[in-house]
Nucleic acid binder design. Structure first.
Length: 648
RNA sequence: GCUGAUGUAGCUCAGUCGGUAGAGCACUUCCUUGGUAAGGAAGAGGUCAUCGGUUCAAGUCCGAUCAUCAGCUCCA
C-alpha cells in the first residue's frame, strides 16, 4: 500500500501500482470523468501511470492552466493524426499547446485551405469517437531515431532527436491508433476527451523559427471537453472583436488610417485628438511636479548623429531610407527621419557645462518618431510607423541612479493606476550573454546596469520576471506589458538604464573634485507611445472612457421644441465651464436621442423637458447606468468638474 | 518581408451559371413634439480597391499592384 496525500491534506491509502484514475475514482465519479492527468509531487504525469511510492498528488482537470496545456497538446496530436489520414505524406514539425489552443507545423505537398480545416475538424471529432487510448512508450534515443527513420518516416522528428535532444538518453513516444509522435508528455488518457474543435487559421512558419530553413504550414486550433465551452469561447472572440481598437477607433471617430497618407501612419481625428491631448496634459502636469524640463527637437536629423549614437548600424533595417541631397557646394548630406529622440536630448545636455550640483537633469518631450516596421507587423495604433513617445532622458550621477529609476517606476505606476490598468506584467529585460554582438558597452557596465535595475525593481516592490535577450543594445530595461482584447501582449511603459550613450556622446559633468565625470542616462516613457497606449486603452475601456478623457463629455437632450431655448442655455453654461458638451436638436423622440448617445458612449446625458425648464433644473442620465435624478445646473457642473479634475 | 485570407454605398453585408448593381443602418428633406436604448414617409448615395488580360459581354474568370486581417519573422 502507498499513502497518497491530496491537495486538501487528506491521505488515502491505495495499493502500490494504483494510477491517477484509481485515485480520482476513489474520490468521485464526476472527478474521474473530468480527470485529464495527474500532478505527482508537483510533476505532471499521465493519468494511467502507475504510482509506486508515497506521494502528494493533484488531479488535473481542464479548469487548471496545466489541464488546458495538456488538453491542447494532445489535441495537436489528434489534429496531426487527422491531417495524416486525410493528406497522406504530411510530415510534422512542432506542435505545442499555446495560451489559447494549439498549433502544428506541417510540411505537406498539399496547400491547406479554409475548406480543409472543416474536413480536418470532422476527422478530429471522428478520431475522438474512436476513443483511442493514448499510450506512452519510453525508448532509447537511438531506438527513437531508428523508429522515425524507418517505421514512421519523419525527418523533422529525427532532427529534433539528433540535435535538440542530443544529450538525452531516454525519450518518450506517444501512440494513439496508427499515429505516433515524439513527445515528453503527459497526455490525455484517450482521444475521446476532446468533444469540440475549432481550427482557426492557417499561416506559415519557418522550421525551428529560422528564416533560412524551409517554411512550413502552421494550422492553429482550439479544442474543448464540451460543446458548451467552445460556444463560450466563440462568444469571447466576438466580444474581443467588438472591443478591437481599430473597429472602435473608426466607429467613435478617434483616428483613421489611409493608404493616401501611407501605411502605418495614423491620423488623429478631432475626437481622438482630445483623448491624446488630455493624456499629454495629465503627464505634463505630473512631470512638472517632478522636476522635468520640457524641450522640443526636430523631426529629422543628420545621419551622422545616429551613426554616433550607434542606432544606425543596429537598426538600419527598420528605418525609413535616408533623405539624401547635395548642398550648394555639391557636398552630399543625409538626413534620417528621427527614429528616436535620445541623441537630440544628449546634445541638449552637452550644450553647456554641467556641475554635479545640477544633476539630475530630466529632459522631456512628446517626440514623434518614424520607424519602418515590416508591413506584416502593422496593426492599427498599436503598431505604427509614425508615433509619438512620451520620451524623457534623465541625466544623473551614479549615486543618484537607483533613486531616479525608482521615481521613474513610481511615475509609471501612477500613470497606469490613474488609467485603470491593474493587470500589468513587469519584465526586467536583460541582455543575452550568448549574443554579445547585439549590445554596446563593456561587460562591467552591463553588470552594473542590470544590478541597478534589479535593485530599483526590488526596492519598489514590483513583481517581475526576467526576459533574457530583451534588453536594448545600450542597456537593460524595466518594461511594463499589458494585454489587448485578443490577449496579445504589448509593451507600454519602459524605464531603461544606459551607460553606453554617455560614452558615445562624451557626456560629462564636473564633480566636487573638479574633475570630469560620466553621468548615467535613464530613458523612460510611461505611456511608451501615445498611439499604442491609446489603442490599448480603447480596448481596455471598450471605448467607455472616463469622464475626463471622453471626447464628448455631455450631450444635452431636449425632449421637445418648446424647451430648445432652455436646453441651449444649459449647453452654453456647460461649455463655459469647460465641459465638452453637445446639443441634440434633432426632431427625434427622447428614446431615440438617448439610444444614439448610449451608442456614442457619451458619459453624461442631460435630459431637459418641460418639468426641468419650469424648475430650472436638469435631469442627468449616466451612460450604461441610467437616470441619476435632477440637479440644478450649477450643482451639475460642480459635480462633473469634480469628477473631471479628479480624473476618476 | 514571408504564408494564407479578404477588398461591392459612410457602416454591416447580399449579389446564383459571366448578361448594364441590391438590402438594413447612417445621411438629407418633409411630416411628427414626444419623458429615459430605434416614430413615419420620401430622397440622395457606387469607375464593384487599382491596373492589365480573357470574352460579343467581367463585381463575377486570370495576372500584377495596393491596402487590410490572422500568423510567422523582426522590434529602439
Amino acid at each position: 500500500m502507498i499513502a497518497i496525500t491530496l491537495p486538501d491534506g487528506t491521505v488515502k491509502s491505495l495499493p502500490s501500482g494504483s494510477t491517477g484514475m484509481d485515485i480520482a475514482l476513489s474520490i468521485g465519479r464526476k472527478l474521474a470523468q473530468d480527470a485529464l492527468a495527474l500532478k505527482v509531487n508537483g510533476q505532471a504525469t499521465d493519468l494511467l501511470a502507475p504510482l509506486s511510492a508515497d506521494s502528494t498528488v493533484e488531479i488535473v482537470t481542464f479548469d487548471s492552466p496545466a489541464g488546458k496545456d495538456i488538453f491542447w497538446h494532445s489535441s495537436s496530436h489528434i489534429m496531426a493524426q487527422a491531417i495524416e489520414e486525410l493528406f497522406a505524406g504530411s510530415k510534422f514539425g512542432a506542435g505545442p499547446s499555446i495560451e489559447q489552443g494549439f498549433y502544428y507545423d506541417i510540411a505537406s505537398e498539399h496547400r491547406f485551405r479554409e475548406d480543409d480545416l472543416r474536413e480536418i475538424e470532422k476527422r478530429v471529432l471522428e478520431i475522438s469517437k474512436r476513443d483511442l487510448p493514448i499510450c506512452r512508450e519510453e525508448m532509447s534515443r537511438t531506438a527513437a531515431i531508428e523508429f522515425f527513420s524507418t517505421t514512421r518516416v519523419d525527418p523533422y522528428k529525427v532532427e529534433i532527436l539528433e540535435e535538440t535532444l542530443k544529450n538525452i538518453e531516454t525519450v518518450s513516444l506517444y501512440h494513439q491508433g496508427e499515429f505516433t509522435d515524439l513527445c515528453i508528455g503527459p497526455h490525455l488518457p484517450s482521444t475521446a476527451k476532446v468533444k469540440a474543435v475549432l481550427l482557426t487559421n492557417i499561416s506559415s512558419s519557418y522550421w525551428r523559427g529560422d528564416s533560412s530553413r524551409e517554411s512550413m504550414q502552421r494550422i492553429y486550433g482550439i479544442t474543448f471537453p464540451s460543446e458548451k465551452l467552445l460556444k463560450e469561447h466563440v462568444l469571447q472572440l466576438e466580444e474581443a472583436k467588438r472591443r478591437d481598437h481599430r473597429k472602435l477607433g473608426a466607429e467613435l471617430e478617434l483616428f483613421m488610417l489611409t493608404p493616401e497618407v501611407g501605411s502605418g501612419l495614423p491620423i488623429w481625428l478631432p475626437k481622438g485628438a482630445i483623448i491624446r491631448n488630455e493624456l499629454e496634459t495629465f503627464l505634463k502636469e505630473e512631470q512638472r511636479k517632478r522636476g522635468y524640463l520640457p524641450v522640443y527637437t526636430p523631426h529629422i536629423g543628420n545621419i551622422e548623429l545616429y551613426k554616433r549614437s550607434g542606432h544606425y548600424p543596429y537598426y538600419s533595417d527598420s528605418q525609413f531610407p535616408p533623405l539624401t541631397y547635395h548642398d550648394e557646394e555639391g557636398k552630399q548630406e543625409q538626413y534620417l527621419l528621427k527614429p528616436m529622440n535620445c541623441p537630440h536630448h544628449h546634445l541638449i545636455y552637452s550644450s553647456k557645462m554641467r556641475s554635479y550640483r545640477d544633476l539630475p537633469i530630466r529632459l522631456t518631450e512628446f517626440g514623434t518618431v518614424y520607424r519602418h516596421e515590416q508591413s506584416g507587423e502593422l496593426n492599427g495604433l498599436v503598431r505604427a510607423r509614425g508615433f509619438t513617445q512620451d520620451d524623457s532622458h534623465i541625466y544623473c550621477r551614479p549615486d543618484q541612479l537607483v533613486d531616479e529609476i525608482c521615481d521613474a517606476i513610481g511615475l509609471t505606476q501612477f500613470v497606469f493606476a490613474t488609467l485603470g490598468f491593474s493587470e500589468i506584467e513587469t519584465r526586467l529585460s536583460m541582455h543575452d550573454p550568448a549574443n554579445q554582438a547585439k549590445y554596446g558597452g563593456t561587460a562591467e557596465v552591463w553588470e552594473q546596469a542590470e544590478k541597478d535595475v534589479k535593485e530599483a525593481a526590488d526596492r519598489m516592490g514590483i513583481k517581475y520576471f526576467i526576459g533574457v535577450g530583451e534588453a536594448s543594445f545600450y542597456g537593460p530595461k524595466i518594461d511594463f506589458i499589458v494585454r489587448d482584447a485578443l490577449g496579445r501582449k504589448w509593451q507600454l511603459g519602459t524605464v531603461q538604464v544606459d551607460y553606453v550613450m554617455p560614452e558615445r556622446f562624451d557626456l560629462t559633468y564636473t564633480g566636487s573634485d573638479s574633475q570630469k565625470h560620466r553621468p548615467v542616462v535613464i530613458h523612460r516613457a510611461p505611456f511608451g507611445s501615445m498611439e499604442r497606449f491609446i489603442g490599448v486603452l480603447i480596448e481596455h475601456t471598450a471605448g467607455n472612457f472616463p469622464l475626463w478623457l471622453a471626447p464628448v463629455q455631455a450631450v444635452v437632450l431636449p425632449i421637445a421644441d418648446d424647451v430648445h431655448d432652455y436646453a441651449s442655455s444649459v449647453h452654453q453654461q456647460l461649455l463655459a465651464a469647460g465641459i465638452r458638451s453637445e446639443l441634440d436638436l434633432r426632431s427625434e423622440k427622447i428614446g431615440r436621442k438617448i439610444r444614439d448617445a448610449e451608442i456614442g458612449k457619451v458619459p453624461c446625458m442631460i435630459i431637459i423637458g418641460q418639468k426641468e425648464k419650469e424648475s430650472t433644473e436638469v435631469s442627468l442620465r449616466r451612460h450604461r447606468i441610467g437616470d441619476e435624478g435632477r440637479y440644478s445646473v450649477s450643482s451639475l457642473i460642480e459635480r462633473l468638474l469634480t469628477e473631471i479634475t479628479g480624473r476618476t
